[in-house]
Amino acid sequence: MPGPFAAFKWEALLSDWNVFAEGFGMTIAVSVLALLLALVLGIAFGMMGTEKSRLFRLVNRCYVELIQNTPLVIQIFFLYNGLPYIGIQLPIFWVGMLGIGVYHGAYAAEVVRAGILSVPKGQFEAAMAQGFSYRDTMRHIILPQAKRLAYPPLTNLAVNLIKNTSVMAMIAGGDLMYHADSWASANLYYGPAYVVTGLLYIAICFPLATYAKHLESKLEVSV
């Protein structure tokens, strides 16, 4: 019996490298777009969470609690298998991007909200007193300060988001994990397939995670 990491299995993987490359490309594309979506949602809903209006705060709470307290897998299954029943058959790429973006958007909203709340109220009042409009106050005074505090957790969030794109493997999504698992279960060369997949994820996530740590330590020094 050859071991799980026998040389010929690695050779097989090398000759099929394009399968993994295709999946890796898909994972990166979904990650980037989902991250953008998560940031947009995070900023929009995060700001709502700091509003005086109860309605806005209620909308923020509903979004955050509903999404954060149910599994991503269920949300993705819903987009994939639920929505077609009411005539919405999103392409698989959209299912991944929307599902993963909306899920992590809820976490981003909490980070953004905490960032904004960390800016002393006086600054807001001072800016308004200076004749700044609400939008300008947010844009030029509050958000730049909130950003500094929100950056490290948002970077960590990006790492989680990239890892969670693997959920697409469960709906035949064509991402890295899907192709790796499909390749491995066809020829039973699990060992090399999983190692290479792990390394590819680490290759994108580790630099980001390290960057997040760097930002955190900078923050600690300045605080």
């Binding site: 969670n164 959920v167 994990m177 698992d181 997949t197 680490i202 580790f206 995670a209």
Partner: peptide
């Protein structure tokens, strides 16, 4: 660092 930068699904598989 190795484990937290790889997806959970990989470990499950």
């Amino acid at each position: 660092e190795a484990v937290r930068n790889a997806p959970l699904l990989l470990f499950i598989l």
